[in-house]
Design a protein around this nucleic acid. Structure first.
Lengths: 289, 289
DNA sequence: CAGAGTTCATACGGGAAGCGCATGATGTAG
DNA sequence: CTACATCATGCGCTTCCCGTATGAACTCTG
């Protein structure tokens, strides 16, 4: 059964006149006449009663008309949805991100994407860099947002979307809190609150590395798994910390952030994806960035 | 879009192997291969990703697969319903009947028809003979059940389904109640309870006619529009009546029915229909009687 | 690593199906 | 009663679709 026959049937049923219906369908009357006959033969049902050279819908024809309209509508929707999925306008984007992306990059990206593709469902979760790269390679997620080690390569496509400096987080009462910018070396005598090495080894190691390059080994008084906790601990006076900007907003009477005058390389924040991932939604997302 | 293409697509999506799918569809592999390509071209959507000479559903293909299955199912149902309507297995039968048919003929007919065609909706109502014949000719109803005047013709097709005698209805205390059968003439002195002439002129006139042929004019004490009322009035002792059998069941201590030994012609009960009515449900019904 | 086996795509010839034109059959209106 | 309207059918032509044969790319196995 061809949907073109159904379309023809619906128009003829509306017009009850083969000639006029044929004009609407850009066909000739004999052709349309035969299409209707073919449909009736295929169904083995008389759809029209030919009474005095005129067409009248039979009871079966009326029933079939309802069904045919429904079918044509459904077919159109099915086609349209497939096309939208193909164009990446419909579907799901599985996006994972490290915590330091949530303050500025993530809302900016998601806002723009949501506006461009409002019908794409976003599947969002935080995830460490290592798990992101593995999930990307195994096709379990579409996009990662993380900070790769400088010079490292993980076989994924990447694009840097922001370069963020390290800043010092100091309790407001700290002697250096009044300064605009400080040198790393000046923190040599302080206690440090850092990321736990287990959750983010690269950040942890790099910070320690920077300190050693500045001539001291940081005294780690406390570790914590997320930025909010670290900042709270700094506010509580347990020590100072080094964080990647942008940093969480917090009462400036408790914690202050200060630039470092050392010439440290900025941290890249990357969007990463698998070049093998054929997801049209992913393509749309990449168009945006 | 041809539904055969959808069927082909569904089978290929199930098998993910064009060769095996082609066998299932009684086609050759190249033909099926081209059908899939044609469908993709028509939709302008890649339904399968050809990765290393193997077929894998794309996201759009998966979406389209759901829609295609739904469409095929709907199409099958639509076709089946139209066929059932065409065969008279689905639809509505508009049947009207006079009151005297409700006691025996109507339940018998409806019981048999309902068993044969359980999916036909029955549209039932009582209606006088005159209105039935008019409604039948104007196509507002499909079947009538009434008692035509002997020898009359109304341009409708008819079939007699029962021939019912007139019986006398007497109060239980009536002197003739002990007799098995009585002659009409013996009721000459009684009061009569009859159908109102307005609702059933032919019955009324025929009964009066029979009485006159028996040598008297019935003294009409009371008229009533339906049988139940007439019987109640007879039970109350307001008079005797002549009714068409079968008669409503009632306490034999109040009313008794007695055969008439006069040689009166029986009353025909007819099924009537318009010969122009093309309703397949009507055809089914007529097959039954 | 080479060769057999799978699997999808394409070239080609033949046949079926569908289209338009012309015309027939039947009913309607002035 | 004639001109018009309407649906069906015959005919020639084109187009589309099928099957066969074959090519191209990948896989599996000894």
């Amino acid at each position: 059964m061809d949907l073109r026959l159904l379309e023809a049937f619906v128009v003829v049923a509306d017009e009850l006149n083969v000639g006029r219906a044929a004009v609407k369908l850009h066909l000739t009357q004999p052709s349309l006449s035969r299409q209707i006959a073919a449909l009736e033969r295929e169904l083995d049902v008389e759809l029209f009663a030919r009474v005095k050279k005129r067409f009248v819908l039979t009871a079966a024809g009326a029933t079939f008309l309802r069904g045919a309209r429904e079918l044509l509508k459904q077919a159109e929707l099915t086609k349209r949805d497939a096309q939208r999925v193909h164009r990446g306008e419909l579907g799901t984007l599985r996006l994972r991100f490290v915590q330091s992306a949530t303050f500025e990059a993530l809302p900016r990206l998601l806002g723009a994407f949501r506006e461009a593709q409002p019908d794409v469902v976003l599947d969002l979760e935080t995830m460490t860099t290592i798990r992101q790269t593995r999930s990307l390679k195994e096709g379990r997620i579409d996009v990662g947002l993380y900070r790769p080690l400088p010079g490292s390569s993980d076989g994924l496509s990447r694009r840097v979307i922001s370069q963020d400096p390290l800043v010092a987080a100091l309790p407001a009462k700290h002697p250096l809190a009044k300064r605009k910018r400080i040198r790393l070396q000046e923190l040599a005598g302080d206690d440090f609150v850092l990321y736990t090495r287990a959750t983010g080894p690269s950040v942890h190691d790099a910070i320690v590395g920077h300190c050693e390059q500045a001539g001291f080994t940081p005294r780690i008084a406390q570790e914590a798994a997320d930025v909010q906790t670290i900042v709270s601990l700094v506010a509580a006076g347990l020590g100072v910390s080094l964080l990647i900007a942008p940093t969480p907003q917090i009462d400036p009477g408790a914690v202050v952030y200060r630039e470092l005058s050392d010439d440290l390389p900025p941290w890249d924040l990357c969007v990463a994806w698998s070049p093998d991932n054929p997801s049209p939604v992913l393509r749309r997302f990449l168009q945006l960035i």
